[in-house]
Design a binder for these strands. Structure first.
Length: 899
DNA sequence: ATTCTCACG
DNA sequence: ACGTACGTGAGAATT
């Protein structure tokens, strides 16, 4: 029969390990009361991951009782070089003990002794009593206890990996020595972390050699007279006291006067009843989700911004739609939740695999049969009925996918995804289950849990499984509506949601469905020209390098440039030499570098744009249909994927040619492009209230030239030279990004000192910009977030971080986000008003694209003049700021020509 | 899955 | 002294 097991855990060393493993994120792991939890998280993972599966018969966590022990009595400076334990860790010790207790494990400490000594003593007791003993620690000192019945597990690399020390492993590590001889080694070599000396001049190598020869320190000194005279012998004789003391300090007691016995250590296993409130107190969401999935009831903690709400409802009534139940479905009224599952995230091409409709009062009805959703079904009728309100998750996806099924969705009342994003852009997650968990509702799983991910993704075959998941999603949407809307209102974001984001959803859906026509002939012609250019450049590069290699591999290119050709590396990445444009341009006039830069430019255009776009043109309509992500960015901007139409080349002519392929969808139609000029600087002038900056815009000045005059002291009657204006432009951008002297100096190629002086002058000239910067950072520290003009919020948890880097980044963000985000607010408002105006004017025009400060339209040539006028008027009056908004616009036969 | 590079505002 | 401009997405190489 297997031996009973005893598990001994070194509480202090593991707490330290866990704390420092997550030290980089110490400011991210904070519960709602401000308690740091990084060590708690790591320790809990250890308990769940190791102790629970181990399921020992006996278990104990030993703790240090304080700084003074019998060792400090022997040697004042024992551990004397240790910094004070950080406050962030100290505050976690008490909850750590609670955590241990809730996991059904005894804690023990003994005044005057270290955790090590408790462990040593209990280990020997267990060994003698016939237990198989396992010690878990973060400290290798305990390996001296290893025996046939005592194994020591030492965590390494944080706490994720573990080394298992057995007598055989010790023998291998110490060249055949026994575990108990480790103390003799340490007696000779000392221990810097515990701050005892050993013998000066004896390191690990010599210590090992000596102990191999003499077996122990005492035997060595017995035989020291026989040792032949040497420097080493002198050192040993002089250091005898140190060696004996150090050995004494290194030795772990196995007979400490403990007041517990093995029978006190019975392992009870986790106390699930009481661990749930404990996890809630610590905000351990992941743990709560795990418990909820195991069938434990996890009630809402209700501390979420003090909004109390009841999300305890977990009883789902979901049924498959049958011909008989169709009557029930058709009788649904008031408010329903609707959810449509697709087999892929690209809803322009994905297949619907199931849907669910219903509410708490009447139950939920699910089906895989899309015919029940289309044609003359009652479901279609409900979806198209404006008076029946729909609660959904991701309304834009729904608009587009239902339109593909010939269903025109109306009456969207609540979009869970959109609201969650507005409430907190940080922990927004496109998964409904994860999002529900974030809001303390656990009765729904994540898609990854149900469907798997990557190659393993699969929709469950059993109706019961799929419908249960869909039903729970629909139920979560319904239950979360009220509490989330209440929080939205507390944030003063109701207007932002109802009047900007929700109407915009429909507009974006229409733009995406409409798509933009891409002339594939144009792209194919470009492709053959570029292929030729690429092979010419490639041959030239091979010739210049002296051999063939993969030009597109930064690694191989690094070897060619900086090893074979011996050019001086300017910058390194963490994996090797950097070969970025920035670096290559600094290398000066080198022929191969010029070829490489040209190659890179062409290769980028070819792969990303020509071939990338050709791949995503829909065969059915010769258009590309991007998806705008409305709930992704931290600032409120949109982003565009599959394809990204917000980064089509424009700055370099060769790439700009790509825009010739973007053409109107019908003959005799044209493209209109209208963009805001310097919208971010105008927003800056508005929100800072800086009169000097505002004056420049009000007077219609060239803003970069005006800044140049101020920061370089150029008189009104003198001209502003191009290079000076360029520098001023960089300063203006820098201000918007949250300037630093380093960043500016790098950007405009002046010394850091000069850059610093320029920034100071800027702030002298625009004093209210400076004041606003300081104020917004102070406000972010106080409130924890910053806001745009439309109350879009961005939380900045790092604004109080101790780490300089993280904090500085948060401070720059505090300045940039209100600016970038308010500009995003403005163009979103403009889009809504433009769409209304186009409808009201009865124009055929379509809004096609949004590129942050630019809108692209197509319209018949005949209505283009009206459209241009309308768009300009709406855009420049979208909001009223203290400075005017200026719009420039162009019409042409393609996006390229609308310049 | 991550890193590097580069396209846009 | 720290080590930096803000916000994105995609392709290719590499792990």
């Amino acid at each position: 029969m297997a031996k009973p097991t005893l598990l001994l855990i070194d509480g202090n060393s593991l707490a330290f390990r866990a704390f420092y493993a997550l030290i980089n994120q110490v400011d991210r792991f904070v519960n709602h009361e401000g308690l740091h939890t990084n060590a708690l998280v790591g320790f809990n993972n250890l308990l769940d991951g190791i102790i629970e599966p181990f399921n020992p018969d006996l278990a104990l966590v030993a703790w240090d009782a304080g700084k003074t022990t019998f060792r400090t009595g022997k040697f004042d400076n024992y551990k004397g070089n240790r910094d004070n334990t950080p406050q962030e860790l100290v505050e976690q010790f008490e909850p750590l003990r609670q955590m241990v207790s809730l996991h059904g494990i005894k804690s023990y400490e003994l005044s005057g002794y270290e955790a090590d000594d408790i462990i040593g003593t209990m280990a020997r007791l267990g060994e003698a009593d016939g237990y198989s003993v396992t010690i878990v620690t973060g400290d290798r000192d305990l390996t001296q206890l290893v025996s046939d019945d005592i194994t020591v597990w030492v965590t390494k690399k944080g706490i994720s990996e573990i080394d298992h020390y057995t007598p055989a492993m010790i023998a291998e590590l110490y060249d055949g020595l026994e575990p108990k001889q480790i103390v003799d080694i340490k007696g000779l070599q000392g221990d810097t972390s515990d701050n005892y000396p050993g013998i000066a001049g004896i390191g690990p190598k010599t210590a090992l050699k000596l102990i191999k020869k003499y077996h122990s320190i005492s035997e060595m000194y017995e035989q020291i007279d026989d040792m032949k005279a040497s420097k080493q012998k002198e050192k040993l004789i002089n250091g005898k006291q140190d060696a004996l003391l150090s050995r004494d300090l290194a030795e772990i007691l196995t007979d400490a006067p403990v007041t517990i016995s093995l029978s006190d250590l019975k392992y009870k296993g986790p106390d699930y009843e009481n661990i749930i409130p404990f996890y809630q107190h610590l905000d351990f969401k992941a743990q709560l989700v795990k418990l909820a999935n195991q069938g434990y009831t996890v009630p809402t903690s209700g501390h979420n911004e003090d909004v109390e709400f009841d999300l305890n409802n977990t009883d789902l009534a979901v049924s498959a739609i049958t011909p008989a139940s169709l009557t029930h479905v058709s009788q649904l009224q008031g408010t329903v939740s609707f959810y449509l599952e697709l087999d892929d995230e690209n809803y322009h091409t994905a297949n619907p695999v199931g849907f669910v409709i219903g509410n708490q009062e009447n139950g939920y009805f699910a089906s895989r049969d899309m015919e029940l959703l289309t044609q003359n079904s009652p479901v279609k009728k409900i979806l198209e009925d404006q008076t029946i309100l729909k609660n959904v998750f991701n309304a834009k996806e729904l608009y587009v996918s239902l339109k593909r099924l010939d269903v025109a969705l109306q009456g969207v009342n609540f979009d869970l995804l959109l609201v969650s994003y507005l409430l907190d852009t940080n922990d927004n997650n496109n998964d409904l289950g994860a999002l529900a968990h974030d809001n303390d509702y656990y009765a729904v799983m994540t898609d990854e849990e149900v469907y798997g991910k990557g190659a393993k993704f699969a929709i469950p075959e059993a109706d019961a499984d799929l419908f249960e998941h869909l039903g729970r999603k629909a139920m979560a949407i319904n239950l979360l509506r009220e509490p989330l809307l209440e929080r939205l209102s507390k944030h003063e974001q109701t207007k932002l949601y109802e009047e900007i984001e929700l109407p915009l959803t429909k507009i974006l859906a229409d733009m995406e469905s409409t798509g933009i026509t891409v002339d594939s002939e144009q792209l194919l012609q470009m492709r053959s020209k570029l292929t030729e250019r690429l092979s010419e450049l490639e041959q030239k590069i091979y010739q210049q390098a002296g051999h063939e290699f993969n030009v597109q591999s930064p690694k191989q290119l690094g070897v060619v440039l900086f090893e074979e050709m011996k050019y001086t590396p300017i910058k390194k990445t963490k994996t090797g030499y950097s070969t970025s444009v920035e670096v290559l341009e600094k290398m000066g006039d080198v022929p191969i570098v010029a070829s490489i830069l040209a190659y890179r430019q062409v290769a980028k255009i070819q792969s990303t744009y020509v071939e990338g776009l050709l791949r995503v043109i829909h065969g059915s309509d010769s258009k590309v249909h991007t998806r705008y992500l409305q709930t992704l960015t931290q600032t409120g901007r949109l982003s565009s994927v599959d394809p990204n139409l917000q980064n089509i080349p424009v700055r370099i002519e060769e790439g700009r040619q790509i825009r010739k392929a973007f053409v109107p969808s019908q003959a005799d139609w044209q493209i209109l492009s209208a963009d805001y000029s310097q919208i971010e600087l105008r927003v800056l002038a508005h929100i800072t209230g800086d009169k000097n900056l505002q004056a420049a815009f009000i007077n219609g000045e060239d803003i970069h030239a005006a800044t140049a005059r101020r920061i370089f002291g150029i008189k009104d009657d003198e001209p502003v030279e191009g290079n000076i204006r360029r520098q001023a432009k960089a300063v203006n951008f820098g201000i918007v990004y949250g300037i630093s002297d380093f960043g500016l100096s790098k950007n405009i190629g002046v010394s850091r000192k000069e850059a610093k002086a320029i920034i100071e002058t800027y702030f002298d000239q625009y004093p209210d910009v400076k004041k606003w910067s300081d104020d917004i950072i102070a406000s972010a520290r106080e409130k924890g977030y910053v806001e745009t003009i439309a109350h879009r919020r961005r939380y900045l948890p790092d604004i109080k971080a101790k780490r300089f880097n993280a904090r500085s980044f948060a401070e720059r963000t505090a300045m940039n986000s209100p600016i970038q985000g308010s500009a995003a607010d403005i163009i979103k408002i403009a889009m809504i008003k433009v769409q209304e105006a186009i409808a009201k004017a009865g124009l055929q025009a379509h809004m096609l694209l949004q590129v942050h400060d630019e809108l692209i339209f197509e319209a018949p040539e005949s209505e283009m003049a009206d459209l241009e006028e309308l768009v300009r008027n709406v855009m420049d009056s979208a909001v009223t700021l203290d400075v005017p908004l200026l719009v420039s616009s162009h019409v042409g036969a393609s996006w390229y020509d609308a310049k």
